[in-house]
Design a binder for these strands. Structure first.
Length: 436
RNA sequence: GCGAAUGUAGCUCAGUUGGUUAGAGCGUCCGGUUGUGGUCCGGAAGGUCAUGGGUUCAAGACCCAUCAUUCGCCCCA
């Protein structure tokens, strides 16, 4: 590739028309499921005060430590491009007094997000996520419903077979703090037997110590304190009920005691959808309960749970699975024309056909019949309508079936109705689009 | 943030141990005599060989830097 004068910065990409077929389809499926379940769409700004993220996600998490795109205003205010969706939604929830609204509050979003990390397969600096949050209900039945919706979305996108649902509970904030302490106590004095990564983990993310692949670390991990001994009976019961509900809903899951999420605000239920091929490396989405977050951000103590998934990864899995999204852009009719009078007539004809809700393209320039037909072919038009001087004079038009390669000359009178019938258009004539 | 590989036309790639005007297939455009696509045939356009330096009489090929992509690690969507 010879370098163009300008190219997109590292790790960020254009979404080209072919990929938008997938994006549109994913959005449609997400919207469908969210609406059915009472979620309403929200968009939060592309950037927030940096504190919104450091406070919620946790200042020691990787996302905050090294993956945030930060901006600074002339007056020295610090902002950050949003690295994930939940923090902004919760900020908006508190700011707009949604605490006063009847619970639960259910919100969904489809937005770009930004993380400054080294690009890789399925990992970009700008990427898109859809997600949903349910605020104000702590019952495990809600956890089951949220997981069920994400599972159903995967099913409708055709990628469910490629994924496994990993499920775990990480207890309450205090359970977890206690457990971290226990782990650190246990590992203190044993640092010599740990690999370099684990020495680092001990300081930064002790829960990950249990997840190491090194043999020596695994031996130690097997002797380490168990989370079962720390978890509160309340959290345990919550998890037991959740599992029952998931079985009732027929949602298959795998228990994964080592599943930890990278954001600090999670409590109790955590889950991720892992690729069967790449494991956690390419999780398509994940979520969990965050009962402490709203209070942490200055609101009333309120339980909540959410899920978010990456669109780019979803598209990748759809492609690998061979799922082709429907092409709503497909051209139904191509109108070819020859001569000035015919061209004039074809302009109104094209308009009339479009008013019937059909996708219609006509030759704009002055190409030959040959080049017009070839264009019709490449656009994948089902039918071509051909209007020349002779037809204009005779009051006829040629209707060509592009797949069969056959054509007939018919009266131009009633052609719009005929085409609408043939292609099943959805008339937009005399209809205000907002009345739909 | 760490380690490694790659970078030749819109796309997929050739390009011999450095040697004159840089190649193919696909795609694009135009033709194959009147107003008809998908096949076939012919022709054309399109590349300062990612960018910038350096070595050499000579560099797409060798060296360095930069940029981008890809693959591991870390982490995550």
């Amino acid at each position: 590739m010879s370098a163009p004068l300008y190219q997109s910065p590292k790790g960020v990409h254009d979404v080209l028309p072919d990929d938008h077929l997938y994006f549109s389809f994913i959005k449609k499926v997400v919207r469908h499921h969210c609406r059915r379940a009472g979620f309403r769409r929200i968009s939060t700004p592309m950037f927030e005060n940096v504190d919104v993220f450091t406070r919620s996600i946790g200042s020691t998490s990787d996302i905050v430590e090294k993956e945030m795109f930060t901006l600074e205003s002339k007056s020295g205010k610090k902002f950050a491009l949003k690295p994930e969706g939940t923090a902004g939604v919760i900020r908006a929830y508190i700011q707009h007094g949604m605490q006063q609204l009847p619970k639960p509050i259910q919100l969904y979003y489809v937005e770009p997000h930004f993380r400054y990390n080294r690009p890789q397969k399925g990992r970009f600096r700008q990427f898109h996520q859809f997600g949903f949050e349910l605020i104000g209900e702590s019952d495990p039945a809600v956890d089951a419903q949220i997981i069920n919706i994400s599972h159903r979305i995967n099913q409708d996108l055709g990628i469910d077979d490629r994924l496994t649902l990993q499920l775990n509970t990480i207890g309450s904030m205090t359970d977890r703090e206690k457990f971290k302490e226990d782990l650190i106590n246990f590992y203190t004095g044993k640092e010599r037997s740990l690999c370099e990564d684990c020495k680092r983990r001990m300081k930064e993310n002790p829960l990950r110590l249990l997840d190491c692949k090194e043999e020596d670390c695994q031996i130690l991990a097997s002797m380490a304190p168990k989370f079962e001994n720390v978890i509160s009976s309340e959290s345990k019961e919550h998890f037991e009920l959740l599992k029952e509900y998931l079985e009732e809903l027929n949602v298959p899951y795998e228990l994964n005691p080592l599943l930890v999420r990278g954001l600090d605000y999670y409590t109790h239920t955590v889950f991720e959808f892992w690729s069967k091929k790449d494991g956690s490396q390419n999780a398509t989405g994940g979520g969990g309960r965050y009962d402490g977050l709203i209070e942490l951000m200055g609101g009333q103590p309120t339980p909540a749970i959410g899920y978010a998934a990456g669109m780019e990864r979803t598209v990748e899995y759809m492609k690998e699975t061979g799922i082709r999204p429907p092409n709503k852009d497909a051209v139904a009719i191509f109108v070819a024309q020859l001569g000035l009078v015919a061209k004039k007539k074809s302009l109104t004809l094209i308009n009339q056909l479009r008013d019937e809700g059909l996708n219609v393209v006509g030759a704009a320039g002055k190409g030959s019949m040959k080049s017009q037909m070839s264009l019709a072919d490449r656009l994948g038009a089902k039918y071509s309508l051909i209007l020349g001087q002779i037809e204009v004079q005779e009051g006829t038009i040629i209707l060509r079936d592009m797949n069969k390669g056959s054509q007939e000359t018919i009266p131009i009178e009633g052609i719009v109705e005929k085409m609408t019938k043939l292609l099943g258009g959805k008339s937009l004539k005399n209809k205000k689009l907002w009345e739909e």
